[in-house]
């Protein structure tokens, strides 16, 4: 649990992350994901409850725990006065890694995140994707057992995101425990073995991506777009079709087990949507169902 004055950022969450697992915290902005990550990273003491990391107490054993963690924060806080390589070697020294070993590790990691060519460049001219990769490399400098990633690909272009995902997947294969926050559903589906959906500082759902979709959504979703001002009257006629009908300003969503069968039923009702799309249900549907469509900031 985490309180800031009267504001409760994290209101009692109960999770257990197993070693070697990739665990995700999903939720809209302000759900309490980053506060949770800061507590797990031992840089923000919990206001209540019990927290154990690697079997230790984050308040009493902060340095010992942090020595075995890698942290990739939401906002890059690379050292702007150092070069790309120095950012890694100097950071390694904070962990007490010998100079020589630090240099070797830095070269290895620059290779891993494909930044070897920029090794002697300053940080400032790097693109957002490069900075992110450097931050991830920095988080790995101490060969951590757990890597904490707070929105690792927010603000990156598709190429950069895929590169980051691929690298994170390789880490997972090496047996590193990944704990990440994200509000990209595809990211969670790609990387996480298990995840929780947070909203307003609480957990609203928990499970593997597949299990969450099965539990909170249907197998398929039919998107119908009617050529009319309002979709509302059509939705009334569709009522009772599938498990759930959701009306958006520009389309109607039908949550159904079988999309094609539902489309046939729609035609049988004599409705002629201008556009029909049948797709598999995804985490995004679960997420929006659980946390709502209203924008909360």
């Amino acid at each position: 649990m985490k309180r800031f004055g009267d504001f409760v950022a994290v209101d009692g969450i109960d999770v257990e992350v197993r070693s070697g697992e990739a665990f995700g915290f999903l939720g809209p902005n302000g759900a309490g994901k980053s506060s949770t990550m800061r507590m797990v990273g031992c840089i923000s003491p919990p206001s209540g409850g019990e927290l154990r990391i690697l079997g230790m107490d984050p308040v009493a054993d902060g340095p010992a725990i942090r020595a075995r963690l890698g942290v990739c924060p939401q906002l890059d806080n690379l050292d702007p006065e150092l070069t790309v390589r120095e950012n890694l070697t100097v950071y390694a020294r904070y962990f007490g890694i010998a100079r020589r070993a630090a240099r070797e590790r830095a070269d290895e990691l620059l290779d891993f995140v494909q930044l070897s060519e920029r090794a002697d460049s300053k940080v400032e001219p790097l693109s957002g994707g490069m900075k992110r990769r450097l931050t991830i490399a920095r988080a790995l400098v101490n060969d951590p057992e757990i890597v904490l990633l707070d929105e690792p690909t927010t603000g990156l272009d598709p190429q950069a995101r895929h590169l980051v995902w691929e690298r994170l997947f390789r880490l997972k294969q090496q047996g590193v425990t990944l704990v990440l926050t994200t509000h990209y559903m595809d990211e969670a589906e790609q990387l996480c073995d298990r995840l929780v959906v947070m909203d307003g500082g609480r957990i609203v759902a928990e499970g593997s991506p597949r299990a969450l979709i099965e539990r909170h959504s249907t197998r398929e979703v039919v998107e119908l777009r009617f050529a009319a001002e309002s979709q509302e009257p059509f939705a009334d006629k569709l009522d009772g079709l599938g498990e759930r009908v959701e009306v958006l300003p520009d389309r109607v969503l039908l949550y159904v087990p079988d999309g094609d069968a539902a489309v046939a039923e729609v035609s049988a009702l004599g409705l002629n949507p201008a556009n029909v799309l049948v797709r598999r249900s995804g985490l995004e549907d679960v997420f929006l169902h659980l946390t709502g469509r209203t924008l909360v900031d």
């Binding site: 990273g41 840089i43 902060g62 340095p63 010992a64 942090r66 020595a67 963690l69 942290v71 924060p73 906002l75 806080n77 690379l78 050292d79 702007p80 006065e81 950071y91 904070y94 962990f95 007490g96 920095r138 101490n142």
Partner: peptide, 14 residues
């Protein structure tokens, strides 16, 4: 402004 110490405190440095 540089947020230098934010990076440092994520390591064993206090």
């Amino acid at each position: 402004y540089m947020k230098l110490y934010d990076g440092m405190i994520a390591t064993p440095v206090r």
